[in-house]
Nucleic acid binder design. Structure first.
Lengths: 166, 166
DNA sequence: ACTCCGGTTGAGACAGAGTCGCAATCACAA
DNA sequence: TTGTGATTGCGACTCTGTCTCAACCGGAGT
């Protein structure tokens, strides 16, 4: 609760500083995102809010998400193959994502050694690094048995071992 | 030329193994991608082929790109904010991308230490790693002066220094 | 508490990227 | 050369996200 309060204050300040208003729609979307820790798509948010008998339009969702991202308290990430997902950010919180191709689960990770190697690479090419996006995809621990079963069932449609590649 | 020949053989084999045909459209798209080393969007490929008086439809471009990616000789990457770009891959060639936000230039990099740390992270969470996508964005060496100038011109619309954040 | 004004909303049109169904066409093996 | 199943082009469609605009509302000033 204290955490939410803090982010709400930041958002309020952000709006105030540019003469924008904290409407009930903006407030509802804020609450929805900060009420749980998940990686949500814009349309999921729309559905959830409407399920809570909150009248809100798609356009407002997108417009508000833009404000939230811009204010720095919400992050926008490409996780699936189409569209973005939004996640709340705590102050100073940076992480990248590990995504299970079977169940879709998203795990956040932070590896300082990767972060610093990124800086090295950027420096090597004379780049000023502004942002990065790093996703790793695979099969999570609990999907491994299922993945194995599926692999056996289909006669590996895509596996073209190098023995056949020429 | 020898390199192209090799990839064409792989593609031929790939089609053959699943009873698919090497049509003139597929061949033309192959040539377009392997004729130069760039990161192209589907529609750019369409335009280029039509400019060469090759009659081809958008649907075929997409369908063929899928085959090329699936056969392993072409890579599909999200580089901009909308859509994918396609790039030819040489055997065993893996790299990630550094993208300039000003000029759009794409630089490929490979940092083995990052690759191996990725394996460590995956192992830490019990993940079987299948793929990853890693992009770094920023300002390239030659755009730095231009970027600086632009920053001075606009009175930094988004910069909300922490001194004002509460 | 009331007013007023500029910011905000909802609805639906629109845009860009990509997919799909189907009739006509083509590759390629016999 | 022929036959047949794969492939193509077209246009309609989907999905994600943006835009326009008239009606509406938040909140500062009174």
């Amino acid at each position: 609760m204290t955490t939410e309060k803090r982010e709400l204050q930041i958002f309020r300040k952000y709006l105030e500083r540019r003469g924008l208003k904290l409407t009930s729609e903006r407030r509802a979307l804020f609450d929805e995102i900060f009420g749980r820790h998940e990686h949500l798509e814009a349309d999921e948010l729309l559905v959830r809010l409407r399920a809570k008998h909150k009248k809100i339009s798609r356009a407002t969702i997108y417009r508000t998400l833009e404000l939230l991202v811009d204010s720095g308290i919400v992050g926008r990430v490409r996780i699936g193959d189409q569209g973005y997902r939004y996640e709340r950010l705590r102050a100073g919180d940076h992480h990248d994502h590990l995504i299970c191709d079977f169940c879709g689960r998203v795990i956040e990770f932070f590896e300082p050694r990767i972060e610093s190697l990124q800086d090295d690479v950027a420096a090597r090419y004379g780049f000023i690094l502004l942002s990065h996006s790093h996703q790793m995809r695979g099969i999570c621990r609990s999907c491994r048995p299922r993945a194995k079963a599926a692999e056996d069932r289909f006669s590996r449609p895509k596996a073209v071992p190098r023995s056949l590649a020429e």
